[in-house]
Design a protein around this nucleic acid. Structure first.
Length: 260
DNA sequence: CATGGTGTTTACAG
DNA sequence: GCTGTAAACACCAT
């Protein structure tokens, strides 16, 4: 559940289920997940309550009524599960019981997720050198980021220190929509392509975010739903090819997205 | 410094 | 059973 649109969904889920309820019990799992001693999480959360949430890139900040807040990073398999029964879900790494006896677990089978305690999101952003949220980013700032970069455009889009929120899946989607080969060097992009990439970042993320929140399917013109080797290109220009770009599995259409 | 490859962890498909 | 792969980032080498 990890790129910006999925985290936006988790935010909405959290807002609808766990705000303004006193936490009466805290249970923690694998200490690998916890970025400060587990006792600190217990101390901060017990007898406290969440009062608001904020998203930055792939991070979700759950503001506590007293003393800062909890920051969730979902890794590849993290998610929130809210429920009203006793049985703790499998892979729970943090389970909170509220005063009304409802409960929430942060589950993560692959343990790539991370939980932090932070004063506020602004400070957390600074400490962890997280870039501008992809949906807050303005075009001139985007163009600035591209200046003097020489690596692949895909690598840049996935660099959270430059732009926060885009991962492997939607980097591929943005580049497919703009007909740009994922291995294109940033300094070889035309102004037109740069502008297209900026616009598609906003469009793809908004579109997917809405779809995730509303439980709708993605447009038929999107690569994401057919993201597999030898799938038919949604523009019917050929077959989707699989390759590796900066170590990540990458899907693209060799006919639509040519490397100049 | 910027860039990109490897390691991490566990489930699942083939 | 084994192999390869998966929406994440941290870390290391170049």
């Amino acid at each position: 559940m990890p790129e910006l649109p999925e985290v936006a969904y988790q935010k909405k889920y959290a807002d609808a289920t766990i705000l303004h309820k006193k936490i009466i019990k805290v249970e923690t799992g694998d200490k690998k997940i916890f970025q400060s001693p587990k006792t600190q999480f217990e101390d901060s959360l017990l007898d406290n309550e969440f009062e608001a949430s904020e998203r930055l890139g792939k991070y979700l900040f759950l503001k506590l009524a007293k003393n800062g807040g909890l920051v969730l990073h979902f890794g590849m398999t993290g998610k929130l599960e809210f429920y009203q029964h006793e049985e703790t879900p499998k892979y729970a790494q943090l389970t909170l019981t509220f005063q009304d006896h409802s409960r929430v677990s942060f589950t993560c089978p692959r343990k790539f997720a991370k939980l932090y305690l932070a004063e506020n999101l602004t400070q957390f952003k600074k400490e962890h050198q997280i870039g501008t949220d992809a949906l807050v980013l303005k075009e001139d700032e985007f163009l600035n980021i591209l200046e003097s970069k020489k690596g692949s455009i895909k690598g840049l889009l996935m660099n959270q220190k430059l732009i926060a929120g885009i991962g492997n899946l939607y980097a591929d989607e943005v580049l497919y929509q703009c007909k740009v080969h994922p291995n294109t060097k940033v300094n070889n992009l035309t102004e037109k392509k740069k502008s297209c990439i900026y616009k598609e970042i906003e469009k793809v993320l908004e579109t997917v975010k809405e779809a995730r929140i509303e439980g709708e399917k993605l447009p038929k013109t999107y690569l994401t739903p057919v993201r597999e080797k030898d799938a038919e290109c949604p523009r019917k220009n050929g077959k989707i090819q699989q390759t590796k770009v900066i170590g990540r599995t990458t899907y693209f259409c060799p006919d639509c997205q040519k490397l100049k």
